[in-house]
Amino acid sequence: MHSASSIKQKFLKKWIMGLQLCNSSKKNMTIMERRKAIKLSADLALASVRNCTTRWSRALVASASQNDDNQALLQHIIGSDAAKHKKASIDVVANSTTSVAKKIASKKILKRSWGIRRVRKLSNVALKDPPYSIAKRLVKKRTQLLKNLVPGGESMDAISLIEETLDYMVWLRAQVDVMRSLARASERLDGK
């Protein structure tokens, strides 16, 4: 298995490659465009470092490949394997398109899941329902929410969802680390 540093290096390289492509293809981007491009290239780099072996990485690639503007970037970052990955991620796309309606519902749940409000809610519900059903429902809601958070999670069952979440979390952390260090470096440069 790779060490943390080598993975981060790989990720950074791929990401920078993607950024270069963005930079060369489009001059005079607005900030929002730049932001999007940076995010997208970071995501794609993450997915490609993960070799598109996990579902979340495939889902990331799939969501990127839905937009035609991203095709060049996709080709550039993921490389020759892009076709294969695209093929693998078709089902992910199919699944992810159906879940837009669920996303809205889960945003409400997300709001509810924050802070102490949840506890109050719980006590209200407890009057009419047996406790185990409450627990079940809470878990179900949160699982649904997690499904929306993890890319490609809509089509997963509980076990694989948790596995993927584990994996995704670790890699997301690496991504955040690299991005932050890059931001910090350029920021320091900027401050000079």
């Binding site: 997300l110 929410l145 958070l149 979390m169 350029s186």
Partner: peptide
């Protein structure tokens, strides 16, 4: 699950913010 969701969300938000920061 709440904790996990919050954590994943915070990570994702961090990615967003960092990309925003880099873009600016």
């Amino acid at each position: 699950l709440d904790e996990i969701i919050n954590y994943v969300q915070s990570l994702q938000r961090q990615v967003e913010l960092l990309s925003m920061k880099l873009s600016t």
